[in-house]
Design a protein around this nucleic acid. Structure first.
Lengths: 266, 266
DNA sequence: CGGGGATTTGACACATATCAAGAGCGGTGG
DNA sequence: CCACCGCTCTTGATATGTGTCAAATCCCCG
């Protein structure tokens, strides 16, 4: 069961059909983004599952997460309908999750970066309800879920961490629903950028200068907008002096105004 | 800790300020809805947490859920910011959950009926991220979460059930986000009605004739629409012969057409 | 019987989608 | 090296779906 789970995972990312490679942006992203955070500072944020664990349990979790999976930009980690057996802990890079509806229409349902765990929606139905695609060259660890559960039965702090992780996922999805249900285009994009900014900061990167890993179209899909609308909102933000945008490079200049726009529906 | 948790809960629903009582609809709802399902048929659907448990563990779960809390229509079970200590298992009646944003703008984030468990968003932050309001006279059981976790450590089937429950909550929230992000007004309302229909059926009630527990305004909030738009969509559905609507009483006449409308963006 | 909320419906305004054109950039092949 | 291609992104003109405002009706409730 354990072994077959691992095989399953490997198949899942190996059977990949090399889709259109993603735009490179090598120079820009290398130059600007990941000024790698000091290892120690980054560590505690690494994985919420590790918070507050004794060294022995920490060791066990890390042992559980030994096998690394490398994905090139554009590759799929798991697909809708794939049998669920593991959660995936993103060690480097970033992913989008795409939800597909029966009629073929799809939506980007989430953007996930280093340190986060994806695949949680598969627990309930034993198969993944969405597709995870690498937005850049990335590395993940598979966390076989039976072993995660076993560890949860054994260590109650770890158990709590797992539950918090799942619960936060619920909260996050609710916040997105809130955003889609109540906000206008500008506010949605603003909220998205501020969220990104905060998550980068938490990971030790610059909070006011970062590179978008998604196209306008993907961002639009995530925010329930069309790509043209996203582009126009970016332009408006730049015109108003809230930020500077150059293709995918974002510099936040006036976070306060952006926050005001998002917070109060004005 | 256990005891204080219970006190907390009791305070939470007792300190209630009797808001405007909800419209009664007593006659209609009594007449139409709950043709009470046979107890045996209903039982397995009662609580997904109980699925597949041995009798001893089932007993333990039921023991854990002894204290019943009664709420009148319009009363609040928990509020945003309340300290989290328990999940709540809805034994009868129904609830809406309302998410509040900092700026006071709020949104109905969910509709929950008999058999479902609410309060899961509190696990991650130790305080509730939304407010739960009874949509009719209702009864819930508090499930103190430490004891739920303890039982999870002890019984791996129960643990799995808990994880499935949390995961399904994630999936459900994602589906709502999908709905809000990609569908138009008619489709959203159609999807909402079909979802209700299915959930009533699963509980042994009629799937084609039911009473809405929410106002047009609440439905609109849930679907990211204004109440007028909801009303217009209802009228359109009726005009097209998909259903018959009379205030809050819905009779689905042509489920197939409704489903077609929802599925294919036409 | 009167008052207040829920609901419906119409007219109009506005935000966003749609359609269309063009510019910028990167990659590829001659 | 340049020309070409494909893709992303931007911007404009217009169409459309919903929101907004307003009025009337219905129903429940005191």
């Amino acid at each position: 069961m354990q072994a077959s789970a691992m095989v399953q995972v490997q198949n899942s990312y190996r059977e990949f059909v090399p889709a259109r490679p993603r735009p490179a942006l090598r120079d820009v992203s290398q130059a600007i983004a990941p000024a790698p955070a000091p290892r120690t500072a980054c560590r505690p944020k690494d994985l919420s599952l590790l918070e507050g664990l004794d060294t022995e349990t920490t060791r066990q979790v890390e042992e559980l997460a030994t096998a690394r999976i490398r994905l090139k930009s554009g590759q799929t980690l798991f697909r809708t309908g794939d049998r669920f057996s593991s959660l995936y802990w993103i060690r480097s890079g970033s992913f989008k999750t795409v939800t597909l509806l029966e009629d073929g229409c799809d939506q980007v349902g989430g953007y996930h970066m280093m340190g986060e765990v994806i695949g949680t929606d598969g627990i309930g139905s034993d198969s993944h309800g969405c597709q995870a695609v690498a937005l850049e060259d990335s590395e993940v660890c598979a966390l076989p879920f039976d072993r995660v559960e076993a560890l949860g039965r054994q260590n109650c702090r770890f158990q709590r961490n797992l539950h918090r992780l799942l619960s936060r996922e619920i909260t996050r999805a609710r916040v997105v629903a809130m955003l889609l249900g109540t906000m206008q285009a500008d506010q949605r994009l603003g909220a998205f950028l501020l969220d990104l900014s905060q998550r980068y900061q938490e990971r030790g990167y610059s909070s006011c200068e970062f590179v978008l890993r998604m196209t306008r179209s993907e961002i639009g899909s995530y925010l329930g907008l069309k790509l043209e609308t996203v582009s126009r909102s970016f332009s408006r933000f730049q015109r108003e002096g809230f930020l500077k945008v150059e293709r995918r490079v974002i510099k936040l200049l006036d976070r306060a105004s952006l926050k005001r726009l998002v917070d109060c529906s004005q």
